[in-house]
């Protein structure tokens, strides 16, 4: 039985323009729409496509977060995942602790592939997949835009600064997804009803026996420095004049 484990993170929806609280203690998340991290949706879509092509028999979605994260896991089940696991933590978890938690799930489930998004759009860390691969002592293929499976190996095309790079990794392995890997499917209403009956296990993070402590303390949140108001020019002549005046051309 070949399993794929997919990580889903609950984040502030990407359409929300996040604002820093006036007292600098955080960003405003009260009453803000929460969603599955967009990169993780792509990871789940890829896992479902692999399963549909016969490359896996089960897709498990897992998340680490507060009890409300069940909503995102149910969405994952409605997309087509077979079952879900919520590692419940009311405190925020740093990527290293998240990687340790995922490793515990790997030890229990024995997946061939772990698919994660390349980064959470909240913390913008881009770390968990790489850390998990290191702790697991297995290959990593980050920023994937194409995944081809072939008898115990995966050929992965990666989006790197210089263009595209293809690597081959032995399975099991961790793959993190880039935007252009696929277009995630929409959830249909009957699937939402069916997803309510699919298994969703919850286990408190304390029961995993990992050190979930943090190394970093956030002292302050600030809004980014704004840019000073620019000028509008009427035509190309004026534009060229301004650029010349600024010494840019």
């Amino acid at each position: 039985m070949s399993k794929i484990l997919v990580g889903l993170k609950r984040v502030v929806d990407y359409n929300v323009r996040v604002r820093v609280k006036p007292d600098g203690t955080g960003v405003v998340t009260e009453g803000v729409k929460m969603s599955i991290n967009p990169f993780d949706e792509i990871a789940l879509e890829e896992a479902l496509r692999i399963k549909e092509k016969g490359g896996a028999t089960e897709v498990i979605v897992a998340s680490i977060g507060p009890a409300d994260t069940q909503q995102q896991l149910r969405t994952g089940l409605a997309m087509g995942a077979d079952r879900a696991i919520l590692v419940q933590s009311d405190a925020p978890v740093e990527p290293l602790a998240a990687a340790k938690a995922f490793l515990k799930l790997i030890e229990k489930e024995g997946p061939q592939i772990v698919l994660l998004g390349k980064q959470g759009i909240d913390d913008d860390n881009n770390q968990t997949g790489q850390m998990l691969a290191a702790l697991w002592n297995r290959p990593q293929a980050t920023f994937a835009s194409k995944v081809e499976l072939d008898s115990g190996r995966a050929k992965v095309t990666r989006e790197v600064d210089a263009g595209l790079e293809t690597i081959e990794v032995d399975l099991p392995a961790v793959i993190t997804t880039d935007l252009r890997l696929n277009e995630p499917r929409y959830v249909k209403l009957p699937d939402i009803m069916k997803a309510k009956k699919k298994p969703l296990d919850t286990l408190p993070i304390a029961e995993l026996g990992i050190d979930a402590g943090s190394q970093f303390k956030t002292l302050k949140y600030e809004a980014p420095a704004g840019r000073s108001k620019g000028v509008m020019v009427k035509d190309v002549g004026e534009l060229v004049a301004v650029l010349k005046q600024k010494g840019l051309i």
Partner: peptide
Amino acid sequence: TFRRPIYAGNAIITVEAA
């Protein structure tokens, strides 16, 4: 002590490492 952007650069945090 370092500063880094989060939320697509919509917030800057000051972080203290152990």
